[in-house]
């Protein structure tokens, strides 16, 4: 029992909470940016503009089918070669945004597809242009349908942030590894407590997602 008390000392807990905060901070920034980019790319894919839709679709397919771990390496090691100095923090955010906006673009596209075709036709018949109809009629409705899957993506984003330990982002898992690296008796307590921390955050969000699904779905 004394090992547990030592492992969960205030100093260690504070260090872990700092890590958890980085995890949440990186995830929040990433999901907001990904949503904006995903929305744009999703609409481009849906609207079948010549060439552009094809190229965007191609890029999205490549990104969606690569392990996220690889993207962390590329943003941390390759981007600076073309003049963009990245820190573990910015490299992680860029990697997550690239990956998640590809995922969200697909969600946006299928969200728009799920809106009744008649709505667009009706709007057009009432004299709105294609883009006006998109903006005022189709997308607002599609957004409601997208909310639950976006929250689920946010949950995977929080879990995926743990992969950024590989480029030494000071997030929750990395901080736990630093603590038990200095005293290996803390391995079990560290894995237990970070599992609880991840679980609480992700489970709470998944409950929210379910509630939203009932309301909008």
């Amino acid at each position: 029992m004394s090992i547990l008390a030592q492992a969960f000392s205030w100093i260690n807990l504070r260090f872990l909470l700092e890590g958890l905060w980085v995890t949440i901070e990186v995830s929040l920034i990433s999901i907001v940016l990904s949503f904006i980019i995903g929305l744009v790319f999703g609409i481009i894919r849906y609207s079948k503009i010549k060439f552009i839709s094809g190229i965007v679709g191609f890029i999205i397919d490549i990104i969606r089918n690569l392990p996220l771990l690889l993207l962390f390496f590329f943003t941390y090691f390759a981007l600076p070669q073309i003049g963009l100095r990245t820190s573990p923090m910015s490299a992680s955010i860029i990697a997550l945004v690239v990956f998640e906006s590809a995922m969200l673009a697909e969600i946006v596209r299928s969200g728009i597809l799920a809106v009744n075709k008649g709505q667009m036709e009706g709007a057009r018949a009432n004299g709105l242009t294609y883009w006006q109809a998109m903006r005022h009629i189709v997308i607002p409705q599609a957004l409601f349908k997208m909310i639950p899957p976006i929250v689920s993506q946010f949950i995977s984003l929080i879990k995926d942030t743990s992969l950024a330990t590989v480029i030494l982002l000071p997030e929750l898992l990395y901080h736990a590894q630093i603590i038990y690296g200095q005293n290996t008796n803390y391995m079990l307590p560290m894995y237990l407590i970070i599992a609880v921390m991840y679980f609480v955050v992700c489970f709470a969000l998944s409950v929210v997602a379910k509630k939203l699904e009932k309301r909008f779905g």
């Binding site: 941390y76 090691f77 981007l79 600076p80 070669q81 100095r85 990245t86 820190s87």
Partner: peptide
């Protein structure tokens, strides 16, 4: 090594 190479 990659970080030195890419000026990080």
């Amino acid at each position: 090594v990659p970080l030195l190479k890419n000026n990080s």
